[in-house]
Design a protein around this nucleic acid. Sequence first.
RNA 1: GGGGGUGUAGCUCAGUUGGUUAGAGCGAUCGCCUGUCACGCGAUAGGUCGCGGGUUCGAGUCCCGUCACUCCCGCCA
Length: 593
Amino acid sequence: MNKYRTHNCSELRVKNAGENVILSGWVNKKRDHGNLLFVDLRDNYGTTQCIVQKNQPFFEELEKIQLETVVKIIGFVSKRSADTINKEINTGEIEIQIENFELLGSCKELPLPVFTDQEYSEEIRLKYRFLDLRRKKIHSNILLRSKVISFIREEMTKLGFMEFQTPILTSSSPEGARDFLVPSRLNPGKFYALPQAPQQFKQLIMVSGFDKYFQIAPCFRDEDARADRSPGEFYQLDIEMSFVEQEDVFNVVEELLKRVFNKFSNKKFLFNKFPRITFEEAMLKYATDKPDLRNPLQIYDLTNIFLREDVSFEIFKKLVKSGSIVRALVAKNTKDKPRSFFDNFDKWAKSEGGSGLAYFTIEQVEKISAKGPVGKLFSTESIQEIMKITGAKVGDSIFFACNNENDVLQLMSVARDKIAKELDLIDKNSFAFCWIVDYPMYELDNTTKKLKFSHNPFSMPQGNEKDIDFKNPLNMKAYQYDIVCNGIELSSGAIRNHKPDLMYKLFEIAGYDKKDVDKKFGGMINALSFGAPPHGGIAPGIDRIIMLLADEKNIREVTMFPMNQNAQDLMMDAPSEITIEQLKELNLQIKKK
RNA sequence: GGGGGUGUAGCUCAGUUGGUUAGAGCGAUCGCCUGUCACGCGAUAGGUCGCGGGUUCGAGUCCCGUCACUCCCGCCA
């Protein structure tokens, strides 16, 4: 028999009444009635009410015990009387009559309450994460994470995939995020990098003939944090497959995500078959390549309206003439909204650094007209044209923004969310997945004005190799795709370029000559020239999947031991200073400020 | 690197236009209480109002600076 317990704290039922039992756990709560003491004992599985009367010799000792102390309770199970049953917990029909107890782990005065729904500061939560993790919500989030990960492993295995580990110490890559670097003791002056993703390794696994790979892979990127982005490290469900086209990857991922989301959430799927939206279409309709499709609002281009003679909105007309564009959103049935409703959006848009949001409401007394500060600047015919383009009806309002393309898109993307939230148009009980496809191979770097890879440099350009228009690289599309759910980008993926010659050509366009490519990606290119299968894959973010399933907005709520925004672990005190000896051994010197 | 928010007791927060001794709930300590399940009742302790400077007869409150946490932008192929 186990020394510490015969049962866990969620196990005992009426049928156990009369049995002698031993339970161990944390003192979750005490209710002290002076001559009668209730102790709620908690472990990973649940809580059990234990009770002791004053006549027991250890009564006073137990009465004074700190919450969160770990104790072993020895006693017997007794059935509760009907009026004292607690239906909230699954051991609520019984209680333990304590016959003795043993202190297993004492507890100092708590820096934060454990048994409470109260929110408290992240600083204190992260410093005492081991206490924070005892709390119900986050404890169950972490359990959910564990279950999801093992389910994913099972399902991937069923789908014929093999899990392989890839190195954690690897080489720095020139593209992409900032690397975390690790100095090499045996190779003075040289550094390893932690992998931003096992990108090259998973391709090498394909070249090695393993056909279907997956891994719950740690990824390291030294970039600034966001609510949905841990600083430092995160996990991807890394997938790669040989002899596949884009659709084959989609089928696997769609099937897997459906199984996972159906198993771990009651929310419904808005689309049973995930819609495919081209990058171009997404940017036009949603002004972002990670649209929240729960939001029914669409964006329309109204630039041409401002070239019309019968529109006298001179500020916008002037901007349009000098190259600005106009994009609009329709807010249905908003004619009765107060003036403040509209002005607040304009005020908000200005606070976003934009030029504001103009608006009018379509009305019809006899003729169709526009109401609002700029309404009279539009003729009936121009309003009718706007209604044709946008599908707006009498009683709807139009919000529009005019600026250069970048700024308009940025504003409209956020405005679309904000207006939908304000009008309560988003069904919170659903998942809206979609694929974003046909990404451009290259884009212009805003600061350097040079061409760069818009996503992964290893992606395969679309079309027959002979027909690819290398002269107009900005027109080149790639077999590059993203999967998005509820406005959250879960993953990017691509069919890879497995042809070294083509790869050199593509890198040349981005400004890397053959020598650069050989130096930076030599291992990869070399491998591809020894018989590489066509292959492709994807890597959905595990943390974000759990966030969606747990309905959490912050990634730290689904991460056991996260770092804070400044990439510090307040509990372990990382990063920390190291000794002179360690530095010497690594041939490093710290430059003083 | 830039912008916003927050910072008052161990924890969560209140604190009016600048005005006497900075409050509450939870927690802690002590006492009372035999059926609670957020038990109840009474008492006590607990404060560099993040830090530094300034304005003022007087600053938790106003101003300047700074630090910490957080959200966003940049960044994240």
